[in-house]
Structures are given as structure tokens and as C-alpha cells.
Nucleic acid binder design. Sequence first.
DNA 1: TGTATATTTGGCGAAATGGCCAAATAGGCA
DNA 2: TGCCTATTTGGCCATTTCGCCAAATATACA
Lengths: 108, 108
Amino acid sequence: MNDKTKKLFDARAAVLKAMAHPTRLFMLDQLAAGEQCVAELTRMVDVDMSTVSKHLNVLKGAGLVDIDKRGSQIFYSLRTPCIMNFFGCLESVLEHNARIQLAVTNIK
Amino acid sequence: MNDKTKKLFDARAAVLKAMAHPTRLFMLDQLAAGEQCVAELTRMVDVDMSTVSKHLNVLKGAGLVDIDKRGSQIFYSLRTPCIMNFFGCLESVLEHNARIQLAVTNIK
DNA sequence: TGTATATTTGGCGAAATGGCCAAATAGGCA
DNA sequence: TGCCTATTTGGCCATTTCGCCAAATATACA
């Protein structure tokens, strides 16, 4: 793998890594329906607000969300909505896994 | 977030997490062109074969690849090729990030 | 100015990750 | 059987991740 290829896959993996956490993925999904402030997102996910803030910072670092400060609140929004198109494919992987799991269970 | 929703996002995130490593992503990309054995993949990625083997096991655990043992070799193949459709969207995120970076550089 | 609300930051500890090396396992073949 | 090749497993260590709490920062508003 040459240097240029390595850099490309490093960059792609970094974006995936930012998405690859249940809380962050859930928040992206929520943001797909429209911008939200930190407090509102915190209400949805049942972890400390400081943790939510750090998760949002990870998403920002990966270029997945934009922020808009208005008054004392900060609104986060999805920068590249096509990200969510991937859910369909994820679902097909999960379904396949579920079928395998079911088959294995039936054998036992 | 209720329990069912949590489980769904845990499962989705697990698949993304399996993809979210440069070496694993590169190997998935290679497998998109056809099955490969461990030794061949190792030749491409410049890490120890034991490390490659563990990466492949992660991909298998996530349901992303299938294996086929033939003789003393084990061939890995992509189970759900639609996974690779996501690259296009990743690219648009990366391009956006690059533009931002360029803009910031120009300001300085 | 002081106080309340919204958000981020710093620090800590527990757990997971990723790499290498050495050793174990499995198959093919003399 | 023994030897070679292909692959996986176990152990170890350095690094990263993720959660909480407490403290800092920023804005609004009286």
C-alpha cells in the first residue's frame, strides 16, 4: 500500500470512526430531522452533557456536523445528509447476521 | 432513548466500528474486487500476518465477510458488497473537509 | 454588577484497541 | 511419520476511548 493510498484510507477510516459509536450515530440520526441544541440531544441520550459535548466535538472534527451559535445555545446540524443513506446497507448486514444467528440457534 | 432503540444503534455502530480502521477498510476495498487469502492480503498491507488475521476476524464478527477454506488456505470474501457504496459519500465529506482546510490556510 | 442557564474543558480511571512476537493449530505432501 | 506452508491464538505493552465529576467559559437578563 503506497503512501497516497494509505492517506486516503486513513481519512476515510477517520470519518467512519467518528460515526462508529452508538450515541454519536443516534445523534446523527436525530440531526437528520433537523438541527438540535446540546441540551436537547442530552435529554435524548441519557449520558452526561459533558459527554454529549465531547461526542459532538468528535463529529465536528470529522466534518460531519456544522454548528450555529445563537444566544447562549449552540445548534448542531448535519453537514452531509447522504451519510444517512448508509443505514439501509447497515440494516442488510444486520439482517443477514440475524438470520445466521437464528440458523445457529436452531441447530443447537 | 428506549431499550429497543439503544440495541438497534449498538448493532449499527458495531458494524461501522468494524469498518472504521484504515487496514480493515483497505482490505474490504480489495475484497470488493474478489476473494483473497490471508497471505495475499498481508502482502498488500504491510503489517504482521497475525495482525491481518485478527483484523479479518473483526470483519467476520461484524458479518462483513465470509470465509471459504480450501486446502491449507482460507479465502475471505465480501458478504454485502453494498458496503462499498458508502465510499462515495465518505468522499464528499472528505472533499468538504479539504475545502474548509484550504480556506483556513488561506486566511492565515 | 450578580445570577442563572448553556456549553465546553480538564482530569481521572476503567476498558478496549492495535501492534508485535512466539507458540499453537491445521493441511498437504514426501 | 516428519516437514513445510498457511493461519490463528495468547501474551504483552503502549495508546486511545469513554464515562463521570468538577471547574471554567460564555451568554442572557435582572
